[in-house]
Every structure is written in structure tokens, then in C-alpha cells.
């Protein structure tokens, strides 16, 4: 597990559901074929109405035409991120697009579990609302040891909720590695 995640942020609002993270018509691609699965990166966050993509200005596509990787590797959002369908294709799509962590005020349960158990992205909860005081394209640094987020330009720091019960699974890599380590799986 990285101790520091550094990168450029993409800012979103509340209630980003899994249909916005990866629209249903794209759920047909293989997730295990490395080439074909790039389609998930290509369409990641394509269901977000453009005016609400890349806040505060909006109108910023997460993925530039044709690419399967985003220039943004951290997503900052409001409450109830990942609500809606159970599709694991959602955290997977973010991972394929190059996202390392999401920081939201709260998560829907299935998305949260999928992110952790599948080892796709780290779902951090922010303690205060931050998606209204930070802009798409800003550089930040997440310190996983101290559970803080630092805004590089202003030097401002925000506290994140410690990962708690899920930390051992994140450290192990995914639920299978965790189960192997703890002797639950042969």
C-alpha cells in the first residue's frame, strides 16, 4: 500500500450513482481481458451530465476523447458516492482510468465494499465537506498514515476519517489476500 498518494483532482457533487460512473450500455465488456477492459476506463464517469463534471466550473470531461486514462487520479465528491446498482464495474472503471483514491463525504454500501474487497481504489471519507472549497485540476497529497489531505497550492490541510476495519483488507490488497493472510483460505 502506498503511504502517500499525490495527484490531480477531479471534483464532483452529491449522489454520483453507478450509472453515472459507468453507464449500463458499457457493462458488456470483459473485465478480465486487459485490452478489452480498457473500454471501462474510456467511459468512466461518462454518465455525469457535463455541466456537473469537473466542479466548480463544470464542463470538463474526465476522459479526453479516445483515451482510456484520465489526467486526474483522485476524485473528490460529496455525499452518497456510488449509490445505485451493485455493479463492481464502477470502482473497476475508475481504477482502469487511473484513479487511486476517492474522497467523499459518504458512500453507498455496495460501492464501498466493492472498492475495498476488490482492491480497486481507496474510498476515504472526509470529515468536513471539501468538494466546495477545492477545484478540479488542483494538486493534492493524501497521507495514508496520518489520514490527512493536503492542498498543495494553499498548503491547507483537511482531516480524513481513519479507514478503520477495512484497513487490513486494503493493506493486504483485496479480500482474498486478506483471507489468505488470516488463514481463512487455503
Amino acid at each position: 500500500m502506498d503511504k502517500i498518494i499525490k495527484g490531480k483532482i477531479f471534483v464532483l457533487g452529491d449522489n454520483i450513482d453507478t450509472d453515472q460512473i459507468i453507464p449500463a450500455e458499457h457493462l458488456v465488456y470483459s473485465l478480465s481481458d486487459p485490452e478489452e477492459s480498457k473500454n471501462y476506463g474510456k467511459h468512466a464517469l461518462s454518465g455525469v451530465p457535463l455541466s456537473k463534471a469537473g466542479l466548480p466550473a463544470g464542463g470538463i470531461p474526465f476522459i479526453k476523447n479516445g483515451s482510456s486514462e484520465s489526467e486526474y487520479n483522485i476524485v473528490i465528491a460529496g455525499s452518497n458516492f456510488g449509490c445505485g446498482s451493485s455493479r463492481e464495474h464502477a470502482p473497476f472503471a475508475l481504477k482502469v482510468a487511473g484513479v487511486k483514491a476517492v474522497i467523499a463525504e459518504s458512500y453507498a454500501r455496495i460501492f464501498y465494499r466493492n472498492s475495498v474487497d476488490g482492491g480497486f481504489i481507496i474510498p476515504y471519507e472526509s470529515i468536513q465537506k471539501i468538494n466546495d472549497s477545492i477545484s478540479t485540476g488542483d494538486e493534492i497529497e493524501i497521507d495514508l498514515m496520518n489520514n490527512t489531505l493536503k492542498h498543495i497550492e494553499s498548503g491547507k490541510s483537511f482531516n480524513l476519517r481513519p479507514l478503520g476495519d477495512i484497513l487490513p483488507i486494503i493493506e493486504a490488497g483485496n479480500i482474498f489476500e486478506y483471507a489468505r493472510k488470516s488463514g481463512m483460505m487455503g
Binding site: I110, R113, N114, D117, D165
Partner: peptide, 20 residues
């Protein structure tokens, strides 16, 4: 309740899953 593919694969192999 609903789960993702990873949790389902874990159940498929072990018959078990963690929940809060």
C-alpha cells in the same frame, strides 16, 4: 442483500462473507 463480483466470487469459493 446485494454485493459486487469480488464478494460474490469469495462466497462462491467459501460460502462465507463478512458483513457489518
Amino acid at each position: 442483500t446485494g454485493v459486487g463480483n469480488t464478494d460474490a466470487a469469495f462466497i462462491l469459493g467459501t460460502g462465507k462473507i463478512w458483513e457489518k
